[in-house]
Design a protein around this nucleic acid. Structure first.
Lengths: 210, 210, 210, 210
DNA sequence: AATGAATGAGAATTCATTCAT
DNA sequence: TATGAATGAATTCTCATTCAT
């Protein structure tokens, strides 16, 4: 049986890992369970990924890569500053809903539990979104869509802050609850998205427009 | 050996717990290690706090209580909408620096790994800050300091989102790195706070002022 | 507070111990719980009884002593062989009901769990009933109430065997169940005693009468 | 390491368990010790048997099954009431000698320490011997070998009582001592069996014959 | 190369016993 | 002398990792 694992199978394994890590946390995740759910033997898991930590890092890399890909795509689309913001909001919400595991995984690790991991992480995540949003704000500023009195890199930072919270809000149970408590909106109800997006656009517009 | 633990000692144990939970996560934290670091025997830990989960909940309660206390204090202070915002920013930054463990603990748990815990958590954290910020925005709106076209509860929500990210930024290593990447600022350098606060004030002012 | 424990209090402590040991077994019994139930501090328990094992042995001694006392009393009463047997059966049943803990304690230890204990036990229990029943059978034989073809010590042994099972039957839940399964009788229903005693008398009478 | 345990090995593990449980009682038995004695890792013990209680129940089931098997075999053999009784006595003595652990295990649990276990036990042990002896007595009665004035189920009960004590006598140290004290016989000396069997036969014969 | 059974170090929790008060 | 809080060794059970097949 010299049938090496296909790339597709490897991705499937990581997807399973992402799901389990997101649900159970790093320590709480069980490699035996992950292997079983992925339909492989533990032997393969360890042969291909080394050990639990390396496997986790691989999963994390994959999830941030995919997120980055989606955001870059949106940012590079046509459109003016304002309409692009709307597209970004929509993309973030829909991505967070569909791939909540990725977000939660990212969220979990940025909380900095497990010092050793976080440190080894620094290199791995290279600012997922900072390039994307930095570029977005820079372009907006270039065409005069951004007030001049706020430093563009600060603006990009605050903008990203709002988007990160948007991610959490649409993927983590706790943040869904929090949304409900604050605004009465249900994160799982797509019909409510318009209201959220409209208000957020106004908020950001006010904050950034010259 | 027959001297009952003072309340102070109990608090000290919880502080140790908060630090370790914040560093290692819930599953990653080792009760033997916590007891050792706190200078007590494991027996005491379990006698006073029941089991690991209850101990964790006690630690969490303590950290959120203290945060809430600080925020309420600031919010109830004198001052107009604008100056109060500045006070809040300062308070959040300074609290996050001093009690980073509290924030990281909170951050970690809201990421939602360990489903069982998160659920049992819902009741415990009753929106730490939602009342505080809700009240702040409501009062601001009452005196006409807030634009009318954004729903006040949405405004409070976005406002809180920014403050939560501020907390993370000044307490979690990953977010400090992120701040550096975006803005070049060093979260540990207090001299840099003014710039951050000033820019954030402008951002929020623009977003909310009528 | 130089008030030494009264003998009465010591007995009360042992009674508590007997109850708990009988309910939970030796390893299952918790000295802290026993002390608490007895209304004393663990300190006292260990000061007066040395350690858990010694305390257990004291409890055991007490329970067998009391059993022996009751049986001796009955055996030394007036009456012929036959009526004395009936008195013994009644006494055993009523004692087993009232002081089931004693019997269960005895039962437990004779099962030989906890090797170390059983060995140290040998000396402690000096045949609780062998003297009593030996004497009974000897006397019966002396007056010609016992068939000559069975060796009197064997007869006493089989007789005691039946009485021991009677003890278990009226004190241990498992044996109560067993009685029900076999005969339909309810060990807790005193009205059913007459049937049991009558049948047992006939059985023994047939087995022993010349 | 990847060779699944043979059924034989699994039985060997249970035999070890039976021995240790019989020696130390349920609470006193140490799973690490059992695994070590059985030549396996603790991991295997828990993988195959779930937890300590389940393992105990498995051991108990095995020991009662085997006892029942032996008794049923004897009871279904050829022979009249009297000769069958003799066969039963011989079988019980030899089984108790050979598999003393089984008997002590059974004895221990029927003593009823550890309430929870005893209850869960009720269902497991379905009267090991009551069917066997009930059938034996019923058949004897059918052919007129049993006196009519004792109810057959009572007769079976007393008969079983004597056999249970016979089991204890030939497997538990305490009961061996007791035998010695009463009769001077040595339970470990097979040469002495004839005397015991003969006397017991006479006792039972007198008790039951019409 | 893949499997998955076995391993055993490690973690939570209990409880007999001590000893400062 | 009595107390009962504190101790920490011991116990059950888990799970990352290995390696014989």
């Amino acid at each position: 049986m010299a049938k090496k694992l296909t790339e597709e199978k490897i991705n499937e394994i990581m997807e399973t890992g992402i799901r389990v890590f997101a649900d159970c946390g790093y320590e709480g995740a069980n490699t035996n369970v992950i292997a079983h759910k992925a339909g492989i033997s533990v032997g393969v898991l360890f042969k291909y990924f080394g050990d639990k930590e390396s496997f986790f890092l691989s999963c994390l890399k994959r999830s941030t890569d995919i997120l980055e890909q989606v955001l870059s795509q949106v940012e590079s689309d046509e459109g003016n500053t304002f309409s692009k913001a709307e597209s970004l909001f929509r993309a973030v919400i829909s991505f967070s809903r569909e791939h909540g595991d990725y977000i939660r995984m990212y969220h979990m690790i940025t909380a900095g539990s497990n010092k050793a991991l976080t440190e080894r992480l620094a290199a791995e995540i290279e600012g997922v979104s900072s390039q994307v949003y930095g570029a977005y704000i820079a372009r907006a500023q270039a065409v005069g869509d951004i007030r001049a009195d706020i430093a563009p890199e600060k603006a990009a930072f605050f903008f990203d802050n709002l988007l990160m919270m948007l991610q959490f809000t649409y993927s983590c149970d706790y943040y869904k609850m929090r949304l409900k408590t604050y605004t009465g909106l249900d994160a799982d109800d797509e019909a409510a998205d318009e209201a959220m997006i409209k208000q957020l656009l106004m908020f950001v517009d006010g904050a950034l427009r010259p």
